[in-house]
């Protein structure tokens, strides 16, 4: 090796026992780190393999930790890092990524891409997998909790006669033998505590709640059956449980991204994200309902009729807004069009 005078780096050495500062200069060679006193006398030389180095970090000093517990704080951090790299001592891969602007830009692009991918594919696929892997008891438990809350706050017993309720149950049961074989469900008739609501919905665990309002509003019995088939679609695909799991997934994603910033802000994507997923589930359940009806020798017509009935009521009443991008249910007209094409 040629004996070009090596550059010296200004540093402070601490013995690890006291807070006293010792001003030194550091020489970096293949033989190790040499500590020189301000008068130029050699204090000690430490082999590079025995020294632990801190990662380079902006304009911060770099630290070298010696085996005897003493510490070297190098103030000329950037040239010091350069000298170490010339000897083949490169910072860790992560530290190198952090230092490079192109790498950070690439990481940003990858970050955005992986968040989008996780949202569109990762979370739904994972939620689906978990939903079908979880024991039934978990789903039932969840459904019971929901039902308890609903019964307490919003629902009451059905006003329909016991005989008619049994009639609807057997209607669905007979059709389910062909349309949804092997699907475990329980059909319950309920009414709302306030007003008449035209709706039916399913809970995790297979409970389907049929509200009196829907039975009264339907023009024909097979329209009720079509709606129940749609709900069975939710049950068969475990949509309720998947909804909960997906909300958890988006929550985790959002809090990884924004959790440092604000807990409340991290909840916003959960709400909007869940709405998007819920629309996809409605369409999936529509498809299921059509298959169900066809297995029973019918077509999509009863479901279309019911949706049209709902759309008419909407027009007479409050009217549905022209844009429905944030709704839990897709635009009714779009659904009707889709069903007609099937």
């Amino acid at each position: 090796m040629s004996s070009t005078p090596a550059a010296l780096f200004g540093a402070t050495w601490f013995d690890g026992q006291t807070a006293a500062a010792h001003t030194v200069n550091v020489d970096v060679t293949a033989g190790g780190l040499s500590l020189l006193a301000t008068d130029g006398s050699l204090l000690r030389t430490v082999g590079l393999d025995t020294v632990e180095l801190s990662e380079p970090c902006a304009r911060a000093p770099r630290f070298a930790y010696f085996q005897d517990g003493s510490t070297l704080e190098v103030h000329d951090a950037e040239p010091f890092t350069g000298a170490l790299e010339a000897l083949g001592l490169r910072p860790s891969p992560v530290a190198r990524l952090q230092r490079s602007a192109p790498a950070a830009t690439g990481a940003l692009a990858l970050l955005v891409a992986s968040i989008i991918l996780a949202y569109t594919h990762g979370v739904p696929v994972l939620a689906r997998w978990i939903a079908f892997a979880l024991p039934e008891s978990v789903e039932e438990r969840l459904g019971e909790q929901f039902e308890k809350t609903l019964n307490l706050q919003l629902l009451k017993n059905s006003d329909l006669s016991e005989k008619y309720q049994a009639h609807v149950r057997s209607l669905l049961q007979d059709a389910a033998v062909r349309g949804a074989p092997g699907i475990q469900y329980v059909l319950k008739s309920r009414a709302t505590q306030e007003g008449k609501v035209i709706n039916a919905f399913s809970l995790p665990g297979g409970t389907i709640i049929l509200l009196d309002g829907l039975v009264e509003a339907a023009a024909k019995e097979n329209q009720v059956l079509a709606v129940l088939a749609h709900e069975l679609g939710h049950v068969a695909n475990k949509h309720g449980l998947r909804n909960v799991l997906q909300a958890l997934g988006i929550g985790a994603l959002a809090s990884a991204m924004w959790g440092d910033f604000a807990g409340v802000a991290a909840n916003v994507p959960v709400v909007f994200g869940a709405l998007h997923y819920s629309r996809a589930f409605e369409l999936e359940a529509d498809t299921y309902a059509v298959t169900f009806l066809r297995a029973n020798g019918m077509d999509a017509q009863p479901l279309i009729e019911f949706f049209e009935l709902m759309a008419e009521r909407k027009d007479e009443g409050e009217g549905e807004g022209p844009v429905d991008i944030l709704s839990t249910h897709p635009q009714t007209k779009d659904r009707i069009e889709r069903l007609k094409r099937m």
């Binding site: 902006a58 304009r59 952090q98 950070a104 990884a256």
Partner: peptide, 20 residues
Amino acid sequence: IAAAALMFRIWVVNLLLTLL
């Protein structure tokens, strides 16, 4: 305390690794 530009890089790289 030093400049923030590096903090952004640290944040981005570490967030990506955390997600992955």
